[in-house]
């Protein structure tokens, strides 16, 4: 464990907790894409299958449960909680995300480190996470104004993988033969997808203007 990875995990945890808190307290999911939340639930479900078979540390298991629990409860709130579901923007959140799932699955079957069930699903979860934010970014461009919490959620979510890139650089130089091209490339693609969001987010913060 290094400071970059710890900061990345904390940033990631805060992003999901900010979103869960927003939805739970103001009972609204305006501006939030349930498709991105469903993709993230699939990402965690397929990445953390080894939670039962391999124990890394208390921290690791605890964080996996936090991410699994928060992503599935956010989907539950947005799909089945009456008050929250009413604020869901069905007309605007139209990204056909099942195509993302299918293409990532095919890609994982083609490009992976080891052809085992767990390893292919783990690779699939990396590919899917890289593109999971797309429905949310598309929804963002359609909805005029987004509230601060949703903006903070996306900012933290984009930031966490950027911190992970610093973690990979650190591990590459400190651990012999620590090389994981698939993880690095997907992590880079994922972070780059946030580039224009970061740009507008920074502008709105600098000019102290509403993000739009």
């Amino acid at each position: 464990m290094n400071i970059f990875r710890l900061a990345g995990d904390m940033t990631h945890m805060f992003s999901v907790l900010v979103l869960l808190l927003k939805i739970h307290t103001i009972k609204s999911c305006a501006g939030v894409s349930v498709k991105t939340q469903e993709l993230y639930a699939i990402v965690f479900a397929t990445r953390y299958l080894d939670i039962f078979t391999s124990f890394v540390s208390i921290y690791n298991t605890f964080m996996k449960l936090v991410f699994l629990g928060s992503s599935f409860s956010i989907v539950w709130y947005m799909r089945y909680h009456k008050a929250v579901h009413r604020t869901y923007d069905r007309e605007q959140d139209t990204f056909r995300h099942w195509f993302l799932v299918l293409s990532c699955l095919l890609l994982a079957l083609l490009i992976h480190e080891k052809f085992t069930f767990l390893e292919v699903l783990w690779t699939f979860s990396l590919y899917l996470e890289a593109v999971a934010i797309l429905p949310q970014l598309v929804l963002l461009q359609r909805t005029r104004n987004i509230d601060n919490l949703t903006g903070q959620y996306i900012f933290l979510l984009g930031g966490y993988r950027g911190l992970y890139i610093l973690n990979w650089i650190y591990r590459y130089f400190t651990e012999p033969h620590f090389v994981h091209w698939i993880t690095w490339i997907t992590g880079l693609v994922q972070t780059l997808l946030y580039a224009d969001f970061f740009y507008y987010y920074f502008l709105s913060w600098k000019n102290n203007k509403k993000l739009n």
């Binding site: 391999s54 992970y164 973690n167």
Partner: peptide
């Protein structure tokens, strides 16, 4: 045996 690449990251 080849070291089982354990995914120690989240």
């Amino acid at each position: 045996i080849e070291h089982e690449f354990e995914h120690d990251e989240l």
